[in-house]
Write a protein that binds this DNA or RNA. Sequence first.
DNA 1: GTGATTCGTTAAGAAGACCT
DNA 2: AGGTCTTCTTAACGAATCAC
Length: 313
Amino acid sequence: MLTDIAKSFQAAKRRYDRGQYALAHCFEVSFECLEALQTNANLRTFGNFTLAGYSLPYSVADSGERLSRPFHPELFIADPEVFKAASEEVADQLGNCNDVDPNLLDQVIYTAISAFSLSYDLWKPRSRKTPSTFFEVVIGSASHIIFPHYALTKHIPIKDVGAAEPVDALAKTEVGDAGDDATEFSGDSVSTDLVITNPQTEKGAVVPLKITTRERIVQPFAHQRILDSAYPGQYASFVSCISEVQRDDATTAVKQICVPGTVALFQKHLAHIKGLYYCDIPRRYARYDFTRIIPVKPFHALFTDIADHLKAD
DNA sequence: GTGATTCGTTAAGAAGACCT
DNA sequence: AGGTCTTCTTAACGAATCAC
């Protein structure tokens, strides 16, 4: 059953790679996943996430043989037909530049990505990369619709900065005694998931897309730091994720893998990014002591914030 | 014990080398 | 031009470890 889903996904990806509209095709893939889950697995409660007296129930998909990652049942549209109607509504409204119900948008994105991920967890659990590729295609396709006049790319070429003008104290220690040819890097580029550029202003929005981040959160900050050095003031990063949850089979509970201290340090001292955007906002990242350092917002705010950043003055 | 952080691992994809 | 082999990069899960 996953063979068909994988084929549909590859077809959608090929369209996307050619720069064609692929959102509806992605939603069809998610619909197929929901049907497969309904037919061949059992969606059931698993356990709670708890933090300081707060408790939130999570569910899993159970194939009898294997358990999926946990998902948030209130964000997840389990009924395939309901999802189909909701996703078509969202796609239509995006296409017509109408306002989309923000909560519906969050639910549709969360369900689309989660249904695909759950299916891979159950029937192709070793494929770790594929769900995130799907995420990339979904958001890239949506961006095509929302920003029809902006350029979408995946790489930003980095011009040579040169040792003569180190950008700061950190760079100074790098060039030091490595010899005169230490700066002979050319043709380098920052490889990201999605870059949206306004050709008028040349401003760009970098959108790292990750299902979960864990300690890999450092990458968007490092990229932003590089871009600040090569193109001061031109790029801003909007880190987009689904959730940070993980099953704990020993206690039949759900954990949210967060690194708040590390992220706060990156934001203060490595590079400044615009915000973290989650479908299922981790509880620890929603606390004021964290959000006063770095904004954490629901997923639907992503597109409006990018539009604000890119618009001509 | 609990929350924060890091590690170990498997696999997919991209790019280049080499062959046909 | 097209195959396939190798190497490098990237994604992200579950488990392990750290710090209080």
